[in-house]
């Protein structure tokens, strides 16, 4: 354990830990869009700017990519940082005018409207909310191992979608992308037996039916994937049941166990 100083407050940290994560643990608010504990720091959204006043590289840098080191001292809310963040928020407001998350942040920073031309595309699969933080691409590739979506193009023409803008053959429909998206840009819906990833070129994924009640509750490829990933003794029952039936099942087993009756499947 080492000690770092954030806004004059001493904090303990693991050596090399992301400073953003240290600050969050301490309840110090640093806005951040492209950071997720399970993923390697990416440094793209530039919202987590902090000023290093004592450390290896002094000056303004991003907290997510800043490694905690003994004696490191940073400030997170200097007037310069706040004004840079405000300007970045204006850029985001123009890029993702439909994002509530961005608008909420703008409000907190006292920004009424952006001075920049707003980009609105009526047919945007990401609902004019995407800020290209890359979390969906990274979670899909690095964590889920699917690699169904990726960046397309470069510069301000960059988009995120499936290759050739066609239904993906490898998307498991797990929805991890939608869960990590900081601006709720990714849309999908479940209708009866099918999940449709509306943002990903309408990729359709069959839903798995609960072996007890028959309700379609989770994408089938994802259920299979999860079963392969789990320990062999857990592979069978639990995931074939929908969450409701599963908890009922667990409760039933607990009752039977406590009453000493034989557990029947």
């Amino acid at each position: 354990m080492i000690r770092v100083v954030i806004n004059g407050k001493a904090c303990t940290a693991e050596k090399g830990e992301s400073l953003l994560s240290v600050a969050r643990r301490k309840g110090i608010d640093i806005p951040a869009f492209c950071y997720e504990e399970t993923l390697a720091p990416y440094g793209a959204c530039r919202m987590c700017l902090v000023e290093v006043v004592k450390g290896a590289q002094e000056g303004i840098t991003t907290a997510c990519t800043l490694a905690a080191a003994e004696g490191l001292e940073v400030l997170t809310q200097t007037s310069e940082i706040v004004s840079l963040r405000r300007a970045l928020i204006e850029l985001y407001l123009a890029q993702a005018p439909r994002s509530e998350a961005i608008r909420a942040l703008a409000q907190r920073y006292g920004i009424q409207k952006t001075r920049f031309a707003r980009k609105v595309r009526p047919d945007d699969p990401l609902q004019n909310r995407c800020i290209l933080c890359g979390l969906c691409v990274r979670i899909c590739h690095d964590v889920m191992g699917a690699g169904a979506i990726n960046y397309i193009g470069r510069g301000h023409f960059t988009e995120i979608n499936t290759p050739f803008y066609e239904e993906s053959a490898v998307c498991m429909g797990c929805g991890a992308c939608a869960r990590v998206c900081p601006t709720q840009a990714i849309a999908f819906e479940d209708i009866v037996q099918t999940r449709t990833m509306k943002s990903w070129s309408g990729t359709r994924v069959p839903l798995h039916a609960c072996s007890k009640c028959g309700r379609h509750f989770a994408p089938a490829p994802f259920v299979n994937y999860a079963r392969q990933k789990l320990a062999p003794d857990l592979q069978q029952t639990p995931l074939r049941l929908c969450p409701d039936c599963r908890s009922r099942e667990i409760a039933r087993k607990a009752v039977l166990l406590s009453t000493g009756a034989a557990v029947a499947d």
């Binding site: 850029l91 985001y92 031309a117 193009g153 470069r154 301000h156 960059t158």
Partner: peptide, 21 residues
């Protein structure tokens, strides 16, 4: 530079676009 920006970080990607406009 706007055309050659990789598009990863927002100031370069969006900022240069607005400078160009």
């Amino acid at each position: 530079t706007d055309e050659e920006s990789c598009g990863k970080c927002v100031p370069c990607r969006e900022g240069l676009k607005h400078m160009l406009m």
